[in-house]
Design a protein around this nucleic acid. Structure first.
Lengths: 204, 204
DNA sequence: ACTATACGAGACACCGTGTCTCGTAAAGAT
DNA sequence: ATCTTTACGAGACACGGTGTCTCGTATAGT
């Protein structure tokens, strides 16, 4: 687990920390404030200075925890989306529908507001880009990769498969529509994408 | 054709304009400067103030032409990419390969640098979003839509087809990879995407 | 006590934004 | 030739965010 924060997590301190302990309340209220501003006024309205004002804390306390706004936002998103369930429904169609359903629901939340701005920041900061890929993309991709593996073992999917490409075919339309706004990201999309991709994946 | 500029184009003035004419040279040098900065230092380094400095013009002359940086950049991109050829190669595979090839080549140019930032700006400015969709996305989509129509008439593609979804399946992986950087955008991707999508589109 | 860290307050320099005013230049209209 | 209209360059302006720093104070372990 890569850290997005400035200091290593204290989740399991090898030795009790030295000085005055962090006020965990600040973390919580800041994250909540960010998610609210994200939802109500968009990515651009999220500001290190503005959030500090909103929660009535010193800006220094923000920079003590996060190196900058993009890291803060990424951290909030990871927090908000929680761990990814990798359901094993028994059928490939079921697994894909479940996986793709989480996309579609995620895009109904703060992710939709944050993603465009975050993508822009990723383009200037390789470290941020890697962190976002690792913490947000990778778990979902792995979940689908596992589902494809199970399907192959069951003989439901062809043995030779460009798995990475299949992942991009599944997710691409969601991100594409979410970022450009030329089409809806709704349950209908989930349905269609899965149906169509199954034609590719199905053996013969 | 929606205008990205502040004033209506003078391409075909109904009546000769009134006052001192615009210096078209400024437009040209600004566009060139933007494309260069885009290429060498990325979207963030493109700045109304900075470009004005670079080309030694007044900032007011910039704002006279474009309402702001995102419109300027979008204008430059449209300029740089030029009109889209919609080749009719005779086969669906050929048409798709041609169309998708232009994606891949576009992402090797300034588009790659500009897109993430532009997407972020689109998220706060519906007018910009619409202009970008109309001028950059729509022509390419139409070109592919036409190819699919031809294929259907030739019996090469199934008659009932969710065309919009097919377009997103074709383009999604390119934008997805370009924006998140988790995979290459190269000729191999073009090949694979077309091959896989043909399995969806092909009649039965 | 001593040390280490956190917190709040405030200051700092920096840069980009978008608007405005001024004096001057270049075109058509009368 | 003058008038009107628009463009241009220069410069100023207020605004807001960034990231860093210093200070005095608070709270923990040693």
């Amino acid at each position: 687990m890569k850290r997005l924060k400035s200091r290593p997590s204290r989740a399991r301190p090898s030795r009790p920390p030295r000085g005055r302990p962090r006020n965990e309340n600040i973390d919580r209220t800041v994250v909540a404030a960010v998610l609210e501003v994200l939802r109500t006024r968009g990515y651009r309205a999220v500001t290190m200075a503005g959030i500090a004002r909103k929660v009535k804390r010193a800006r220094a306390s923000m920079y003590r925890r996060w190196p900058g706004k993009p890291y803060l936002v990424a951290d909030c998103l990871v927090n908000a989306m929680g761990p990814r369930p990798a359901p094993d429904t028994g059928s490939l169609r079921g697994d894909l529908r479940a996986a793709v359903g989480t996309f579609q629901r995620a895009f109904a939340g703060p992710l939709k507001e944050a993603l465009p701005g975050l993508v822009a920041d990723m383009a200037h900061d390789p470290r941020l880009a890697q962190a976002v890929r690792r913490q947000m993309l990778a778990p979902r991709r792995k979940s689908i990769r596992d589902a494809l593996d199970r399907a192959r073992r069951r003989g439901e999917a062809r043995r030779t498969l460009d798995v990475e490409l299949v992942l991009d075919l599944l997710a691409g339309p969601f991100y594409f529509r979410a970022l450009f706004g030329h089409g809806p990201v709704d349950p209908r999309l989930s349905r269609s994408v899965v149906d169509h991709v199954l034609k590719i994946v199905g053996r013969k």
